[in-house]
Amino acid sequence: MTAPARTAHRYVDVEGVRVFYRESLPDRADAPVLLLLHGFPSASHQYRALFDRLGSRYRLIAPDHPGSGHTEAPAGYTYSFDRLADLTEGFVRALGLTRFALYVFDFGAPIGFRVAERNPEWIAGLIVQNGNAYADGLSEAARDLLAQRPDTPGGPERVHAELTLEAVRGQYLTGVPDPSLVAPDNWTLDHHFLGLPGHREAQAALLFDYHTNVESYDRWQAWLRKHTPPALIVWGENDPFFTEAGARAYRRDLPDAELHLFDTGHFALETHAEEIAPLVAGFLDRLNEEWR
């Protein structure tokens, strides 16, 4: 019988930010390390299904980004993807990580690609779940949202409309054939965190800054071609923002990438953790053979 997974919940100070993170406590001290970067508008709790299923075998580490979850940023903190990548890089150094697989989703993808671009020697492998890096993967709804700027007429209203309870619920349920499989705790908790002081403004700032990620796509694709990390792509194919084409596009630059599409929406782990967890485990096991 497999031992139950255990998870520690910790804080570390990085560049004046009190970063909250969850870390699994595997049975082996030399267990492979997987760094998981969460997406919008959630936090590290979105990976609880993987922690429960894989935490006894692998060292899973998932921080909350500033402006999300339990992480505490000082007043006046500047929210941009460059800044969050700086913070994540500092977080990795603070934990003493030197080699790990990287799991990126949604906002976590542009943060993770920035970190990988600066520190390619850290990245043993890449797992992408609905984390876009190709223009092919941007739906019309995504293009409309990402075109907004603070000074665009109606821009602030359009962006803040994505931060309502109804919009957050829609992110979880759109494209899911059986919505009863998605626990309402998800959007309730995410909406709670959005209501914390400064969080709603932080997420709006990041949505306004997202265009810098699209402008970086060519550079990240070049990084993939140059470094060719082993890659696993798992994708909810009914995602209303990041489409199936964005998943398939990775294989232009990583032709050996393993690709799995699931009949679900943006938060694929909510409905398909039973299928995705063994794929992640198999991927990490193969990487571990190479590490050894």
Results as ranks from 00 to 15, higher is better:
Ser56Trp: 07
Leu287Arg: 08
Asp218Phe: 01
Gly67Asp: 07
Tyr11Val: 10
Ala135Phe: 03
Gly69Val: 12
Tyr103Phe: 15
Gly154Met: 07
Ala85Gln: 15
Leu207Ala: 04
Glu275Leu: 11
Glu244Gln: 14
Val280Ala: 00
Val33Asn: 01
Ala204Met: 05
Asn186Val: 10
Leu25Tyr: 03
Arg292Met: 04
Tyr250His: 13
Leu102Ala: 03
Pro179Asn: 15
Glu201Leu: 03
Glu140Ser: 10
Ala101Phe: 10
Tyr172Trp: 13
Phe262Gln: 02
Ala3Trp: 06
Thr98Pro: 01
Ala109Gln: 15
Gly195Gln: 08
Arg28Pro: 00
Phe208Arg: 00
Ala204Val: 05
Arg149Thr: 15
Val168Tyr: 04
Gly198Thr: 10
Gly67Asn: 06
Leu194Met: 05
Pro177His: 01
Pro230Trp: 00
Pro150Cys: 02
Leu279Val: 03
Glu270Ala: 14
Phe208Asp: 01
Gly69Tyr: 14
Arg57Ile: 06
Gly137Arg: 02
Pro26Val: 02
Phe100Leu: 09
Leu50Arg: 05
Ala161Ile: 14
Leu54Glu: 11
Trp223Ile: 01
Leu126Trp: 00
Pro240Gly: 10
Thr7Leu: 14
Ala49Gln: 12
Tyr11Glu: 14
Leu138His: 02
Glu290Cys: 00
Val12Gln: 03
Glu117Met: 06
Gly195Pro: 05
Arg48Asn: 06
Val128Thr: 11
Val168Gly: 05
Ala249Ile: 00
Pro32Gln: 00
Arg28Thr: 04
Arg200Gln: 13
Tyr11Thr: 07
Arg28Phe: 00
Pro74His: 14
Asn130Pro: 02
Thr228Phe: 03
Leu145Asp: 06
Arg158Asp: 07
Asp256Tyr: 10
His266Asp: 03
Gly170Thr: 09
Gly170Ser: 05
Ala116Asp: 04
Asp239Tyr: 13
Ala73Phe: 04
Thr88Leu: 11
Ser56Val: 10
Phe262Lys: 00
Leu196Thr: 04
Ala167Asp: 14
Val176Gln: 08
His199Thr: 06
Ala94Lys: 12
Gly67Gln: 02
Thr228Arg: 15
Phe283Thr: 00
Ala268Gly: 10
Ala3Phe: 07
Arg59Ile: 11
Arg248Cys: 04
Arg149Cys: 09
Glu140Arg: 11
Arg10Gln: 14
Ala245Asp: 13
Leu284Phe: 02
Pro41Asn: 07
Asp190Ile: 13
Val128Ile: 15
Ser44His: 09
Leu60Gly: 09
Ile123Met: 05
Ala273Ile: 11
Val280Ile: 03
Val12Asp: 03
Gly90Trp: 11
Ala257Leu: 07
His65Asn: 11
Asp82Asn: 15
Tyr21Glu: 06
Val234Lys: 03
Glu117Tyr: 11
Gln221His: 06
Pro230Val: 01
Ala231Gln: 02
Phe91Cys: 09
Asp64Gln: 15
Pro229Gln: 04
Arg99Asp: 12
Tyr58Gly: 11
Arg6Leu: 08
His227Ser: 06
Val19Phe: 05
Pro153Gln: 09
Arg22Ile: 00
Arg18Val: 08
Ala268Leu: 15
